[in-house]
Design a protein around this nucleic acid. Structure first.
Length: 848
RNA sequence: GCCCGGGUGGUGGAAUGGUAUACACGAAGGACUUAAAAUCCUUUGGUCGCAAGGCUAUGUGGGUUCGACUCCCACCCCGGGCACCA
């Protein structure tokens, strides 16, 4: 029996001492990366290492195939989880984080990963976040950062603003609280400027299709047109003299966005969002302003999500006293305000075509508005069918003046041309994705490298006319955000000050706002009085670029090393959970694209190939959680069964992408397998040549196994790779004695999965070097196939017999053999043979 | 509603047009043992049969094919994502 406790520690120490994982600077580069964890107080459970084991298997495999492998690990230690943990346990986040990191590292080391700890990074290290701040400054400098007072999503429990991406089911993703809308001063990153690139370059990525789909969906591109509707006082209501077409009677304008310009002649009313400026501007024209205002106030309290969240019954109220004019036919249509129209998307106003839009249909039915059909499914039939619900597909345009008869697609093109010619609107592309709210009112994050200077603000405001002088003195970002001045690069990092009380204030100000002597500072531009920004960056800031940080690590410091970046980027294989599809993976791509534009990196995408690992559920089928008391700690598994057993089991338990429940019985089976392989050693008889000749079949089998394991690791089919090794072990067990070479091949193929076990056996059997530095076994393609095979004989597609014949047998020969077999003769009986299908080296099917 | 992914023994799963159920777990029986654990051997989709062997089975119903878990159509169920985005 082999004893993991005796050998694992020994080899881990040896590998670390010999630094066998270090990049050797030889061979083709292979950068394999895990999504780095945030070091929570709970430590790792057995679900976490699944991805780490997979990358470790791949890293060891690639090393042995001659690649120069980089496989680093670090800590995403800023942000709400770490801070909330620290608050709950009354410990300063820094102390808690360091303690947790120590624990995580110990747990990881017990599993025998290949991490090069010299490259370990920590997002909360000032040397690290110096560069997070640096990237932010570069974005600011180029005008990609703007301040906003827009109401943002606010979590009353975490006491901070959140990005749209931080919500789950409309609730705070961290604590599950209902969120509110709150006007707060915010920093926002212009991510929408990269929408098109983020969408387009998805094509170049070797990522799981569902993740690509999710990102595409999230970016939500739609192509359409804007149309300007002028607004006039309503004639019938008597608010103006009955003189039509007087341009003086125009009191406002509403621009709408539509993807269905072809339906414009079916527009019977307009709907604006409660935030729309028209309402405030035309206060005096709107007859029922009080009622409208009441509706608007009530709607504005809700977040976009609450407003768009499965509300079946749409509400709205007409703006009485004004009408909008459809520029295509000069028809006056009523204007409504309704909360289902969002101020933050498109133009905040829509044209309603109830005949061809489900929402408009529903709304028109409720408020008894006219429904006019202008798209016909069965053109050129003289009559369109009557509608009992909205017809939303394309068709032919009817009752649309000169556009009548065109297909929907053609009509959209012609109508856009008409709009552009008459300067009444034009082509427009919209994205669902919003700019990124990039500020948190919390302590435990990267401080912004910005100060506010009243002096400089005045200067910018006064000199506005003289743009030359301003452009020389201030950056694009500083002009965009008057008064906000960048801290010079040489003064980075702006360190997070030590505080005693770091609880969030709840007032919308960060706890940093209480540290007066930190806040008050001098303006780097004019040397006048200034104060620091007290918000901090969100958790995602540090993880946007950490894969570059590993390449920059020089001892304790970091250096933007373009040579290393050029060498290692992009990441060749990135492994992590599917939950990051629209957050980390989108943010990181955004930052990387920005870095590409400023020539700090040299390719367009950070992660070439992505793989998602499935969750490991608890034995009871639920998620592992403290709450259910069903968490399994890898330390216990390592102690009782060994790291190799844990590794092997996690790779064998099922397809890598699939979520799967833990089974301690299954785990035991893996230990049994290792024990059996260990015992096989005693069967070795070292009479190489004799045995090899005697057992050609085994030789072929081994070659097949090498091929299978090699291909399966390459394609992430670890479960079948392990099973192939088991089959080989089973075969060897059947032999009375085995040859050392064969046995060592098995050990060698097992080594990425069970590195300690394999190292031990390798050395016992005379291996001079570490097995992990040995060349990966090659297979002889001539020895993959045996010269005989079992020809499957089918009658009408049903297997009736198997006959052992020589490889490469011709159809004629095969037929002869088969038709002479008694079994087959009997099966055919008196029936006539209609047809014979022959698949070379596989089967023969007789159709009767 | 829309977009993905999936449905195969008692369980995790294997097979992507050519031998369905590899491999593992569990279970049953046996060997060893004073006994138990561990280990080893045998059996293990269902069904009929003493057996040889047959029939039947990959969510359901159709289709294509000499041949379908695999391809096509419709439906049911489970998981995930997006969701009044004009």
């Amino acid at each position: 029996m082999y004893n993991p406790q005796k050998i694992e520690r020994k080899w881990q120490k040896f590998w670390q001492a010999k630094k066998i994982y270090k990049s050797r600077g030889k061979g083709k580069k292979f950068y394999v990366l895990d999504m780095f964890p945030y070091p929570s107080g709970e430590g790792l459970h057995v679900g976490h290492p699944r991805g780490y084991i997979a990358t470790d298997v791949v890293a060891r495999f690639k090393m042995r195939r001659g690649f120069d492998v980089l496989h680093p690990m670090g800590w995403d230690a800023f942000g709400l989880p770490a801070e909330n943990y620290a608050l709950a346990n009354k410990i300063h986040p820094k102390i808690a984080v360091n303690r947790n990191i120590k624990r995580f590292k110990e747990q990881m080391n017990k599993i025998g990963f290949t991490y090069d700890w010299d490259k370990e990074i920590n997002t909360t290290d000032p040397e690290y976040y110096k560069w997070t701040q640096w990237i932010f400054l570069k974005m600011f400098e180029r005008g990609l950062v703007y301040g906003s007072r827009e109401p943002i999503i606010w979590c009353p429990s975490c006491k901070t603003g959140l990005a749209l991406e931080d919500l789950e089911d409309g609730k705070c993703e961290r604590c599950g609280s209902e969120v509110e809308k709150k006007p707060l001063r915010q920093w926002v990153l212009k991510m929408t400027a990269y929408a098109e690139k983020l969408l387009n370059d998805l094509k170049s990525l070797d990522w799981p299709q569902p993740i690509i789909d999710q990102q595409r969906n999230w970016i939500g591109k739609s192509e359409g047109a804007t149309i300007k509707f002028v607004v006039r006082p309503d004639v019938k209501s008597g608010s103006r003299p009955k003189r039509r077409d007087s341009s003086k009677s125009v009191v406002g304008e509403a621009e709408v966005f539509t993807t269905r310009l072809d339906t414009i002649f079916g527009c019977t009313y307009l709907v604006v969002a409660p935030e729309h400026s028209l309402i405030e501007n035309l206060k005096s024209n709107i007859k029922n302003y009080d009622a409208v205002q009441k509706y608007v106030n009530q709607a504005e309290k809700k977040t976009d999500l609450a407003r768009t969240d499965l509300v079946k019954d749409k509400t709205g109220i007409e703006l009485k006293g004004i009408k909008a004019v459809n520029p295509f036919n000069n028809e006056e249509v009523p204007i409504f305000v309704a909360d289902y129209v969002l101020g933050s998307y498109g133009t905040g106003a829509v044209m309603a075509v109830p005949a061809h839009d489900e929402r408009d249909w529903e709304f028109a039915k409720k408020y008894k508005l006219p429904i006019r059909m202008v798209i016909c499914p069965n053109y050129p039939e003289p009559k369109c069918p009557a509608l009992d619900k909205a017809y939303i597909d394309d068709g032919h345009v009817v009752d649309s003046q000169k556009f009548t008869g065109l297909t929907s697609q053609k009509a959209r093109q012609e109508m856009v041309k008409w709009l552009e010619k008459n300067k009444l609107g034009g082509k427009k592309i919209n994205y669902k994705m919003r700019d990124w709210v990039f500020a948190r009112q919390r302590y435990w994050g990267e401080p912004f490298p910005l100060v506010f200077c009243e002096n400089c603000k005045n200067e910018i405001n006064q000199l506005k006319a003289n743009s030359y002088k301003l452009k020389a003195k201030f950056t694009k970002g500083e002009l965009l955000n008057p008064g906000w001045i960048q801290i010079p690069e040489k003064n980075l990092p702006v360190k997070l000050p030590e505080v005693k009380r770091y609880e969030p204030s709840g007032t919308g100000e960060s706890p940093l706002a209480n540290i007066k002597d930190w806040i008050i500072t001098k303006c780097p531009k004019c040397n006048g009085h200034a104060h620091r920004e007290t918000n901090t960056m969100p958790q995602w800031a540090g993880s946007n670029w950490y894969y570059i940080a590993y390449l920059m690590k020089k001892g304790r410091k970091y250096e933007w090393d373009k040579k290393e970046i050029k060498k290692w980027m992009p990441v060749d294989l990135y492994v992590g959970g599917v939950e990051h599809a629209t957050r980390h993976l989108l943010y990181a791509r955004f930052w990387y694209k920005f870095l590409y534009d400023i020539k700090a990196v040299f390719n367009k995408e950070p992660f070439q190939k992505l793989m998602n690992q499935g969750l490991i559920l608890a034995e009871d089928g639920r998620k592992m959680s403290k709450r259910w008391k069903n968490v399994i700690n890898p330390d216990d598994i390592v102690k009782n069964f060994g790291a190799d057993t844990l590794r092997l089991y996690e790779m064998f338990m099922g397809p890598f992408v699939q979520s799967i429940a833990w089974s301690t019985d299954g785990l035991r089976g893996m230990k049994r397998f290792l024990d059996r392989v260990y015992k096989l050693k005693s069967k070795i008889k070292n009479q190489k040549s004799k045995l090899q000749l005697k057992n050609k079949k085994l030789e072929i089998f081994i070659n097949q196994t090498i091929k299978k394991v090699t291909e399966d690791i390459e394609s992430f089919k670890f479960n079948t790779a392990v099973s192939a090794l088991m089959v080989l072990a089973n075969e060897l067990e059947k032999e009375p004695d085995i040859n050392k070479g064969h046995y060592l091949t098995l050990v060698s193929l097992l080594s990425p999965f069970a590195p300690h076990f394999s190292e031990e056996l390798w050395r016992e059997l005379g291996g001079k070097n570490s097995i992990h530095l040995e060349k990966w076994p090659d297979y002889n393609s001539k020895l993959i196939h045996f010269d005989k095979f079992d020809l499957v004989v089918q009658i009408n597609g049903k297997v009736r017999d198997k006959i052992s014949v020589g490889k490469g047998i011709s159809q004629k020969e095969a037929e002869e053999v088969v038709l002479n077999s008694d079994k087959i003769k009997q099966a055919i009986g008196l029936s006539k043979i209609k047809k014979i299908i022959f698949v070379p080296d596989r089967l023969i099917n007789i159709v009767i």
